[in-house]
Computed example of a mutant assay.
Amino acid sequence: MISSLIKTLFYRRTDAMFTDQETAEFELMLRNTDSEGSVRYESKFPKYRFIDYVVQNKNMVVHGSNRTDIDQFEVRRQTLFNGQPVEAVFASKDGIWSIFYAILDRSKVVYNFRNGCIKTASDMRYYFFSLTEPTYASDPWTTGSVYFLPADAFERTTRSKAYFDEWVCRQRIHPVMKLSINKEDFVYLNKVAVHKPNESIALTWLLYKFRTRSKR
Rank of each mutant, 00 (worst) to 15 (best):
Arg49Ile: 05
Cys117Gln: 00
Gln56Lys: 10
Arg159Pro: 00
Tyr101Ser: 12
Trp97Asp: 02
Val109Thr: 09
Gly116Ser: 15
Phe128Asp: 00
Asn190Ser: 15
Trp141Val: 03
Gly37His: 00
Thr23Gly: 05
Gly116Cys: 15
Pro134Asn: 02
Ala102His: 07
Ala151Asn: 03
Val176Gln: 08
Val146Phe: 14
Val54Asn: 10
Arg106His: 06
Tyr163Cys: 11
Val54Gln: 06
Lys44Thr: 09
Ser65Glu: 08
Thr158Glu: 08
Val110Pro: 07
Ser4Ile: 06
Thr135Ile: 09
Phe45Val: 05
Arg125Thr: 11
Gly37Asp: 04
Thr143Asn: 04
Lys161His: 13
Ser4Asn: 15
Lys178Cys: 00
Tyr188Gly: 07
Arg213Ala: 12
Phe154Asp: 02
Val146Ser: 06
Phe128Gly: 03
Trp167Cys: 02
Gly116Val: 04
Val54Pro: 12
Ile96Cys: 15
Gly144Val: 08
Arg159Leu: 12
Lys93Tyr: 04
Asp152Arg: 14
Phe128Leu: 11
Thr157Leu: 10
Arg125Asn: 05
Ser160Asn: 15
Pro175Arg: 06
Val39Tyr: 02
Asp105Glu: 12
Lys108Arg: 15
Phe128Gln: 00
Arg67Met: 06
Arg159Ala: 13
Tyr111Ser: 14
Asp105Phe: 05
Ile181Asn: 06
Tyr208Ile: 01
Thr79Asn: 04
Pro85Asn: 11
Gln56Val: 00
Ile173Met: 02
Ser214Leu: 15
Glu133Tyr: 00
Gln56Ser: 11
Glu22Gln: 10
Leu5Arg: 15
Thr143Lys: 08
Glu27Lys: 10
Ser65Thr: 08
Tyr136Leu: 04
Gly64Tyr: 08
Ala88Tyr: 04
Leu131Ile: 09
Ala193Asp: 02
Arg13Ala: 10
Val176Gly: 07
Ser130Glu: 12
Pro140Ala: 12
His174Cys: 12
Leu28Ser: 05
Ser122Arg: 09
Lys215Pro: 07
Asn59Arg: 14
Phe164Tyr: 15
Val89Lys: 03
Thr14Gln: 13
Tyr11Leu: 10
Ser130Gly: 02
Ile99Thr: 06
Gln171Phe: 06
Gln56Thr: 04
Lys119Gln: 07
Asp94Cys: 08
Asn112Pro: 03
Pro134Thr: 07
Ile201Met: 08
Glu199Thr: 14
Arg67Lys: 13
Glu166Thr: 04
Leu5Cys: 10
Glu42Thr: 10
Glu74Asp: 15
Arg170Met: 06
Pro197Thr: 00
Glu166Gly: 04
Thr132Gln: 01
Leu131Ser: 08
Glu87Phe: 03
Val194Met: 06
Val110Ile: 14
Thr142Asn: 08
Asn198Lys: 15
